[in-house]
């Protein structure tokens, strides 16, 4: 019982986020619930007792210095760490109340529900159409070519790329600009109808205009998806997220409403990091 209380004190109640459309206050439910997550790479412990609630249909930003464990934790959510030899994950991660590490869970199916976008755009060396169609095809989501066409168009529209590529769907995806490639990768993630999209520094290789487009896209996507973004840009975290979590040396130091974290952080480590001071 005492243990349970301790766990609760570590976690955060789902915050209230303001809906951009209505300006009304909307209570969001918890989508991902992590408790006492510890991650080891061989003997080295990378994460210590991470407990956090990720709100549904909102953007949560993970910030912290390089090597603080934010990407490691992000990769726990869709079990990407399973692919790393010697990596062990302890503790619990639940997605909508179901254990992501349960015995019956197929990681491949899980990764369709929890899409991921990486730092460098990584389109397949295939056509734009094939990049987006690949996921729906292997998950047998379309019964016909016509249905697949619809999914491809919808996904490209959701990623804000349709108008730019609709006349050249058969050209190779790697021929697009960096920003377009990143949106193509987002379209590819969206195509398999995920609940959650993980983004690991999605704009770090992009120019300011392409970055702005991705940020605008993130803001639109959050109406339908739970988004978690790892970013080194404090300004970006402040702009796109509703909740922010600060990681430092493998620990979760502070979580809170983004506005609160960036105007009045509680922990001096958070303050020193976001204001660019020596620790």
């Amino acid at each position: 019982m005492a243990e349970e209380r301790a766990m609760h004190s570590l976690s955060m109640a789902a915050p209230t986020v303001t809906s951009a459309q209505t300006g009304a206050l909307v209570d969001t439910a918890t989508k991902v619930r992590a408790r006492d997550v510890n991650v080891f790479y061989g003997d080295k412990q990378a994460l210590h007792d991470i407990s956090i609630d990720i709100p549904d249909r909102a953007v949560t930003a993970f910030i912290g210095p390089s090597g603080c464990g934010k990407t490691t934790f992000l990769r726990c959510i869709n079990r990407m760490n399973d692919l790393i030899p010697g990596c062990r994950v302890k503790g619990s991660i639940e997605i909508e109340g179901a254990d992501a590490y349960g015995k019956t869970v197929d990681p491949v199916v899980l990764r369709a529900r929890v899409g991921m976008v990486f730092q460098k755009p990584n389109p397949f060396p295939k056509s734009i159409y094939e990049n987006v169609a690949y996921g729906p095809r292997i998950h047998a989501m379309a019964k016909s070519k016509a249905e697949l066409d619809v999914i491809v168009e919808q996904s490209l529209r959701r990623a804000g790329l349709w108008d730019e590529v609709k006349d050249r769907l058969n050209q190779t995806g790697t021929g697009l600009s960096g920003g377009q490639q990143q949106r193509l990768v987002i379209a590819r993630a969206v195509a398999v109808n995920p609940d959650i999209i993980l983004m690991d520094e999605p704009c770090s290789a992009l120019d300011p205009i392409a970055t702005a487009k991705i940020e605008e896209l993130i803001d639109e996507l959050r109406a339908n998806y739970t988004i978690i973004i790892v970013t080194h840009s404090m300004a970006q975290a402040a702009r796109v997220s509703q909740k922010t979590a600060f990681f430092h040396m493998g620990r979760l130091v502070e979580t809170g409403a983004t506005e609160e974290i960036f105007t009045n952080p509680r922990d001096t480590r958070t303050q020193d990091y976001i204001t660019g001071r020596f620790g």
């Binding site: 404090m234 402040a238 960036f262 105007t263 009045n264 952080p265 958070t270 303050q271 976001i274 204001t275």
Partner: peptide
């Protein structure tokens, strides 16, 4: 500088 937190204040 786009100040944040106590710097912004």
């Amino acid at each position: 500088r786009q100040p944040l937190a106590n710097d912004l204040r």
